[in-house]
Design a protein around this nucleic acid. Structure first.
Length: 208
DNA sequence: ATGACGATTTACT
DNA sequence: GTAAATCGTCATA
């Protein structure tokens, strides 16, 4: 392999990157590309522009708070790079990247993407909405990319039908904010564990 | 068996 | 801004 090819090859994120702590990985994922392929051959991708970190058993807002371990959140306890998909509000899915190490349930919630590949397929699945309204929220991006509980527990590092590719340029300009949709969880409601690309039009909630 | 609760989205006032 | 939609999950009994 030539030096040129090596530097231009898209790099799939691998186990050692997923082994970062959630608060570090959440920022590291901004600008990276989430890729999804379907049995019918279609391929979709979007740049990650907003994330949230759920930092472990002491995080009151986390599904794994206090070490809670049930059939629903079992994949949070898996290898770094495991995909955690849950169903909520009776109608929406949300997708997370499990990180840190096995049995340390930390994860990064993917909250918004900028669609860059398969945009027409994405729009069709979102009822024909404009691209800017297709992936600007955790439930929306799952609908757009056909992500549901059937993908819970898969290995994103293996990259069969869903994986993440590293960004090619440097880190985009980053803003932080409190996480969205957290009820009263004391200090954990206010901590700035949300990261997004500053000023990006596809972010779900721009407020800091 | 029951009930409360969502890491949300959409439509409507 | 407020409210409805809609149901799997889990703690409690």
């Amino acid at each position: 392999m030539s030096r040129e090819a090596a530097t231009t090859d898209v790099m799939r994120l691998s186990r050692d990157t997923f082994a970062l702590p959630a608060a570090t990985l959440a920022r590291r994922l901004l600008g990276c590309r989430l890729v999804r392929t379907l049995p019918d051959g279609s391929r979709m991708a979007g740049l990650i522009v907003e994330t949230e970190a759920y930092v472990g058993v002491r995080d009151r807002a986390s599904h794994a708070f206090g070490g809670r371990r049930t059939p629903r959140n079992e994949s949070m306890y898996g290898e770094p790079g495991t995909c955690y998909v849950y169903f909520t509000y009776g109608m929406h899915h949300c997708v997370n990247v499990v990180c840190s190490r096995r049995d340390d349930p930390q994860a990064v919630l993917l909250r918004a993407l900028e669609p860059v590949e398969g945009v027409e397929v994405i729009r069709a699945r979102r009822g024909g909405k404009p691209p800017g309204s297709c992936c600007n929220g955790p439930g929306k991006l799952c609908e757009a990319m056909a992500i549901d509980r059937s993908l819970d527990g898969i290995d994103l590092a293996a990259g069969e039908t869903l994986w993440i590719e590293d960004r090619e340029g440097g880190e985009p300009p980053v803003s932080t904010a409190a996480r969205v949709g957290i009820g009263d969880k004391g200090v954990w409601t206010r901590r700035r564990l949300r990261w997004f690309v500053r000023g990006h039009p596809h972010v779900s909630v721009a407020r800091d």
